[in-house]
Simulated scan of single mutants.
Amino acid sequence: MDLTQNTALVVVDVQQGFEDSAFWGPRNNPAADDNIAALLDTWQSTGRPVVFVRHDSVKPGSPLHPAHPGNALKPYVEERRGKGSGPELFLSKTVNSAFYGTPDLGAWFKAAGITSFVVAGIQTNMCAETTARMGGNLGYDVLFALDATYTFDQEGPFGWRLTADEIARATAVTLHGGGFATVTTTADLVAAAGQQLTR
């Protein structure tokens, strides 16, 4: 894996409202938050660009609605804002893709000469996956840190129900197999970011 110095880390919707298990139901990957923190620390310590994304739900009953405390970023993410030596962007959005937020992510990438980015955050199959898919469609080189994401059990049509792990695997297969993104791990990304410094 070859990471350029301006490969951005896009941290999607790591918000306190996702701790509401009564609302969301069972989740997977309890190590996700530690992995997100490790990626943030690596990107910030190496001076790479970081994008913090917050979802401002338009649904009044959602824990992510701006009127609810759950709209706030999780403390370990919030306390890292502004701490890196590289470029940083904070954006908010009301839909799945971070490319439809304010300020405009694509314009910021273009101005900074960013052509590749890593996706981490919540939910694996929702805003993280949508941001990765759209990035791939727009011609970016997208890396998807699967173990730095998590999601929840979900019911679909015809009474079908998938566990969070099954959903995460489906996302990984779709992104990787469909050519939208390269699905990878936190350890591989951290190692590649560290190796880049010695070149």
Rank of each mutant, 00 (worst) to 15 (best):
R80G: 15
A191M: 12
F90Y: 09
A22T: 14
Y100C: 06
W43P: 08
G84V: 12
V119S: 08
K59I: 09
F158A: 15
A72W: 04
L175C: 06
T94Q: 13
S21P: 00
T174A: 13
V95A: 12
V190T: 15
A193I: 13
A112D: 05
N125V: 14
G86D: 07
E19R: 14
V14E: 05
R133H: 11
A8C: 00
W24V: 01
G17V: 11
L39P: 14
L105F: 08
T171V: 13
F52P: 02
V118Y: 01
V77S: 13
A168Y: 10
A192P: 08
D153F: 07
G106T: 08
T124K: 01
K110R: 12
E88H: 11
N35L: 11
A128E: 01
D2V: 08
R161A: 13
N6T: 07
R199C: 08
D2E: 14
R81H: 01
M1E: 07
F99S: 11
G194K: 09
A168S: 15
F18N: 01
G135Y: 12
A72V: 05
V51I: 13
H176P: 00
A38P: 08
K83W: 00
I36R: 04
P75R: 06
G17S: 04
S92F: 00
P26K: 01
G121Q: 04
G47F: 04
S21H: 11
T171E: 03
L91G: 07
E166S: 03
I114F: 10
D104E: 06
G61Q: 09
T182S: 10
G25N: 04
Y100M: 06
I114V: 15
Y100K: 06
L89W: 03
V50C: 08
K74Y: 02
G136S: 08
T149D: 11
E166D: 15
A31M: 08
F23C: 01
N125T: 15
L162A: 13
V50G: 06
H176L: 03
L189E: 14
A132F: 03
E129H: 10
N29I: 07
V10N: 05
L175Q: 12
V77E: 11
K83N: 10
A191C: 03
V50M: 03
A107Y: 10
T182D: 07
K59H: 15
N71V: 09
A191V: 10
T185F: 06
P63K: 09
H68G: 00
P49S: 05
F180T: 06
P157S: 14
G25T: 06
F109G: 06
A72T: 04
L89E: 10
R169P: 02
A111M: 01
K59V: 14
R54W: 00
E155L: 07
A172I: 09
T171W: 00
T151K: 04
G156I: 11
P63M: 10
G82Y: 05
G70K: 09
T7W: 02
F18V: 09
G177I: 03
V142Q: 01
A67G: 11
N6M: 05
P30H: 06
V58E: 13
A32R: 02
R133D: 07
Y100W: 09
D104W: 03
A187F: 08
P30L: 06
L3K: 05
D147F: 02
P63A: 14
D165K: 03
N28T: 13
